[in-house]
Design a protein around this nucleic acid. Structure first.
Lengths: 171, 171
DNA sequence: GGTGAAAGAGGGCCTAG
DNA sequence: CTAGGCCCTCTTTCACC
């Protein structure tokens, strides 16, 4: 019941709908900007902010979720505050004959607790992982056990992250 | 007032506190996992989920925000649904004599509406940008106008993103 | 598309155990 | 930390513009 709601929120992020170009007016854009900055703003405060009635605002937000513009609401957790003091970007290239297995491989790697983001690429590298680890040993064992030991992996390149910043707003 | 709360949420993400290793028990971890999956779960539902009283849960969440474990709550907006159908990772390397200007440069680039994430790196590249653009022309003009035209930028490498997945949970 | 009213639910803050 | 209660705000639905 409660579990179900949080589980579905995760699943939604995993299975993106093919939403192409939803019509948005200026009010929608301001709603999205506000929710991008603070997902926990109350509906009434949001309504005041964008200048519409609370009930209208509520309907707008629900519609934006239904059509897939809003994929979910997530807490931003500081990795270093929970003991993951080391962050890195890992570029991974696969053997050319392993490209067909990429989907399954990514789904597996996505489940590792160290993995924060997976970017599946067209280019020299097949994907980039954003990972957070307790320390250098933890990072090394992640790379060795999940990547280097896999015969489908042709190579990896790890770069430490000094700082990670979110963009201001996509609108 | 309302503006202030959303503004401060952004600023918090910009100026990370040096929070190192906060003590967390198992209840805290479950709270964080739930809020990571669904930031809009109600306090009472969250309390039931982790098995504590609502008032206790409320205090826990507030404490996790105050000490910086939770940096904020953000809506996850699908770029393709708002007309940004093209996503890319751009690796950027700077001229070696420009390294001192990196902070200002990043702060500038972070404000571009196309920029979703900035990863400031130690390694061959100085940083990686995750950007979303309307189309190839928009992407090209972003790279040309913001990166290639800057004499501090030594080189860039752009890779299209096929798919972007969030990690399951950092805990 | 938009509004405002109204009922119910939930948040936030107590105090006592 | 829990339990219970209280007040008040917010959510959510509804009929209506």
């Amino acid at each position: 019941m409660v579990i179900k709601s949080s589980t579905s929120a995760v699943d939604r992020a995993v299975a993106p709908k093919n939403v192409r170009a939803v019509d948005l007016d200026d009010v929608d854009r301001r709603i999205l900007t506000a929710l991008h900055a603070d997902a926990r703003i109350s509906n009434s405060a949001l309504a005041d902010l964008v200048g519409i009635a609370a009930s209208t605002c509520h309907g707008r937000v629900r519609r934006l979720q239904e059509v897939g513009v809003i994929r979910g609401f997530h807490a931003d957790i500081d990795p270093s505050a929970i003991g993951l003091s080391l962050q890195a970007m890992i570029s991974v290239s696969l053997q050319s004959n392993a490209r067909g297995k990429i989907e399954g491989f990514i789904e597996h790697i996505r489940r590792r607790p160290q993995v924060m983001e997976v970017y599946f690429l067209a280019g020299a590298d097949d994907f980039i992982l954003h990972v957070a680890a307790r320390d250098t040993d933890d990072l090394r064992s992640f790379v060795v056990q999940n990547l280097n030991s896999d015969s489908d992996v042709a190579g990896t390149q790890t770069s430490l992250i000094f700082e990670h910043l979110r963009g201001a707003s996509p609108l």
